[in-house]
Design a protein around this nucleic acid. Structure first.
Lengths: 163, 163
DNA sequence: AGGTCGTAGTTGCGTGTGCAAGTACTCTAC
DNA sequence: GTAGAGTACTTGCACACGCAACTACGACCT
């Protein structure tokens, strides 16, 4: 008979979480050491770098990342303190604020990206074949879209502005 | 030409992390609401429940989970406070300690597991076919083993004691 | 215009976490 | 046996996070 403590679905969820947490730990450590950026910061900066005018509304940024609005406020505070981004008012909605990459911020991401790609190759894509990578991408996209549909415009859709 | 800001590997890593974080948020909320257990607690309890005598050394538990030894100490403190687990001394090594599931603890996991499986079905395995599930499992296992080899004895290997 | 409801972002508070240093023990070598 | 190195946790500290409450503004209805 089948023990629910060993259900296959538990294993799958466990693997997903362990992979992600493990990967984040590795990538974060290396990025910190070699570029002085936390993964959190890198994530925010690269999202801004990919956006038109290197700017995004706070709410959009919060939706795309792992942070709640509250967490984002503080993360942006810290990034502003070290002059990697700036807040600017939104002219059409005085409640709103844009987070804008500074020149220094842009420079930092640009130099960090190739370094990070090496780490990625080492810790993630290096163990997968070309076809495994695309398989995995499709599977994860299904899960992500189901679990966090808000995040859709992130990254892989950057080049496809909606009709 | 190819903009490194839109590299495919970044997308893949992003999807992995977003899926996992999103999934944890969903699962955590529901488990909290319906069973009064955080995902963290559930994870610790189920690992103990699967172990011989419902006990594990602190270090083993730390290696299997997402926590550092320091984090684990505190997590176990909290679980001990609510009598779901107990610490017992290790007879062969007086530095060491076992975390042992209490009867109440075992009862709680046993009732939580089926509930959690429903959530899992809803948020994760429900969007995947049988074959996609096993594909995903293999891919993630590769990544997990590469990124956190320490965690190997967890879950899916429970039934395969090493020779 | 004025009232109500919704939204964008910020802040107080409590909590969980990792890092580094500390404690207590074991193991190895001489 | 005893110094020194290593191991198994634990604790002090600082920090990042989420939640809920708050402020400030927009949108809509009458």
């Amino acid at each position: 008979m089948h023990d629910p403590l060993d259900d296959d679905r538990l294993t799958l969820a466990g693997l997903l979480i362990e992979s992600s947490v493990g990967l984040r730990a590795q990538l974060g450590r290396r990025l910190e050491d070699e570029c002085g950026l936390s993964l959190q910061w890198f994530d925010l900066l690269i999202r801004l770098a990919r956006s038109p005018d290197h700017r995004l509304r706070m709410a959009e940024l919060a939706a795309q990342t792992v942070l709640t609005p509250s967490g984002l406020t503080r993360a942006v505070d810290r990034l502003e303190e070290v002059r990697l981004i700036e807040r600017t008012a939104c002219p059409s909605d005085r409640r709103g604020a844009f987070a804008v990459l500074t020149d220094e911020g842009l420079r930092r991401v640009r130099t960090a990206v190739p370094v990070h790609l090496v780490h990625l190759e080492e810790h993630l894509t290096g163990v997968l074949s070309e076809s495994e990578r695309s398989q995995l991408k499709e599977l994860l996209r299904k899960i992500r879209d189901h679990v966090n549909p808000e995040a859709r415009p992130s990254g892989e859709l950057t080049r496809c502005p909606q009709p």
